[in-house]
């Protein structure tokens, strides 16, 4: 007895359950809502305009189909404190979190996860696996990738960040690139810092921070509410 045969037998038995005809009841209930009959026809909204910002390109996630997600990128040029803040467009089911000028809050679900974010992992432990994800660390103990063992999707933080930079600064030369931690904000943040040069202009810092729930989105996983 193999799995598919057992399921076929089970489904056949389930299909034998007779379902009552509920159409009249369903229709009456819907029609009983007063404003249903007067409800104006909704235009297909497509992507919500709330999520449209200036200067945006969609970013292609490496291991999954094209996904648009939020990344807050701040660019400091020269001695200026702040400059342009780029927000990528979101796919409509990713809610916008409240953002600060230079980073998105990154909140850990557990103390253990927080420690991971802070890089408190032994250099000997290049991979950490919890019940949900597999975390990959580089030789410096910095988180560099997150994988979902069930779907096989893997997010490479460095590659994703470089792709973002290429999309927004196609003519630029990347002089240095580092993954660092930023504990200066309300929540610890994992940052990708890049020093690039474009058209003679030196951009000293591009900081891209990743928000915890966004990792799950990037992996194509719904936020864990269980």
């Amino acid at each position: 007895m193999n799995e598919s045969h057992a399921l076929e037998l089970f489904e056949n038995e389930l299909n034998a359950i007779k379902m009552p005809d509920l159409w009249e009841k369903v229709y009456s209930r819907v029609q009983s809502i007063p404003d249903i009959r007067q409800r104006p026809k909704r235009r297909s909204r497509g992507f919500s305009t709330n999520y449209t910002f200036a200067a945006l390109a969609s970013v292609i996630l490496l291991a999954a189909a094209s996904t648009i997600y939020i990344i807050n990128m701040s660019v400091n040029i020269g001695d200026e404190q702040t400059s342009n803040v780029y927000n990528t467009a979101l796919s409509d089911d990713i809610p916008i979190k409240s953002v600060q000028p230079h980073s998105l809050a990154l909140s850990a679900r557990t103390d253990e996860e927080l420690e991971l974010m802070l890089g408190k992992v032994s250099l000997n432990d290049m991979i950490y696996e919890d019940s949900a994800y597999i975390y990959h660390f580089d030789e410096n103990g910095i988180l560099c990738g997150i994988a979902d063992p069930e779907s096989g999707n893997c997010l490479d933080l460095e590659k994703t960040a470089k792709l973002l930079i290429e999309n927004h600064f196609p003519e630029a030369t990347v002089n240095s690139f580092a993954v660092t931690l930023d504990n200066s904000g309300e929540h610890p943040a994992l940052c990708i810092k890049a020093d690039i040069t474009q058209n003679g202009l030196s951009i000293t810092e591009i900081k891209i921070t990743f928000f915890t729930d966004e990792w799950r989105k990037l992996l194509g996983i719904e936020p864990d509410q269980g």
């Binding site: 209930r29 819907v30 809502i33 909204r45 497509g46 919500s48 709330n50 409509d92 089911d93």
Partner: peptide
């Protein structure tokens, strides 16, 4: 069915 009809989210 009623909930589906009344869904008023602005997201697809």
């Amino acid at each position: 069915f009623l909930s589906i009809i009344l869904y008023s989210g602005n997201k697809r």
